[in-house]
Amino acid sequence: MRMRSLQAVCGLAAVAVLSGANATAAPPLGSHTEKWINLQVGDCVADLPPADLSRVTVTIVDCSTAHLAEVYLRAPMAVDTAIANVANRDCTAGLAPYTGKTLDSGQFSINYLIDSNQDRTAANPLPSTLICLLQAGNGQPLTGSAHR
Rank of each mutant, 00 (worst) to 15 (best):
R74H: 04
L113H: 07
A14Y: 09
Y72G: 03
C132Q: 03
K101L: 04
C91M: 09
D47L: 05
P76A: 12
M3G: 11
A23G: 09
D90L: 15
G100W: 01
Y72I: 00
R74W: 03
I131T: 09
C132K: 02
E70D: 00
C44M: 01
A8S: 15
L126V: 11
Q135G: 09
N117C: 08
A51R: 09
P49K: 10
I114E: 10
T33E: 11
R89H: 15
I60Q: 06
S105W: 02
L53R: 13
A13S: 14
T81A: 11
T65R: 10
A16G: 15
L134V: 01
T24W: 06
R74V: 15
E34W: 01
G106Y: 03
L12P: 03
D52K: 02
L103P: 02
T57Y: 02
Q140E: 09
S64E: 08
G42L: 00
E70I: 06
I131Y: 00
L142W: 05
D115F: 07
L133Y: 03
R148W: 13
P127A: 03
L29T: 15
R120W: 13
M77F: 09
Q40P: 04
Q135H: 11
W36C: 01
R89D: 13
A87Q: 04
G30E: 02
P141M: 07
A122W: 04
E34S: 11
L6D: 07
I83D: 11
N85Y: 11
S145R: 02
P27V: 10
T59C: 11
Q135V: 11
A122P: 00
D52N: 15
A25V: 05
L130A: 01
V71L: 06
A13V: 14
C91S: 12
G20A: 06
L68D: 00
S19L: 03
A8I: 05
R55C: 08
Q118H: 10
P141N: 11
R55L: 11
M3D: 09
V15C: 12
L12K: 04
L18W: 10
T24Q: 14
G20N: 14
L95M: 10
T129V: 12
S105R: 04
N88T: 12
R4I: 05
L68G: 07
V61T: 13
L103A: 01
M77A: 08
H147K: 15
T57A: 03
L142P: 05
A123F: 10
A69D: 02
R55D: 10
G139F: 10
Q107N: 08
A146W: 08
N117Q: 12
L130M: 01
R2E: 05
S64K: 14
T129E: 04
F108K: 00
P50I: 01
A14K: 09
A21N: 07
I60C: 12
L126K: 08
P76L: 08
S19Q: 12
S54C: 06
R120C: 04
T24A: 15
N124I: 10
K101E: 13
N111R: 14
A123L: 14
L126A: 13
M1D: 08
T57G: 01
S109Y: 10
T102P: 07
C91G: 04
V79I: 13
C63Y: 07
S54N: 07
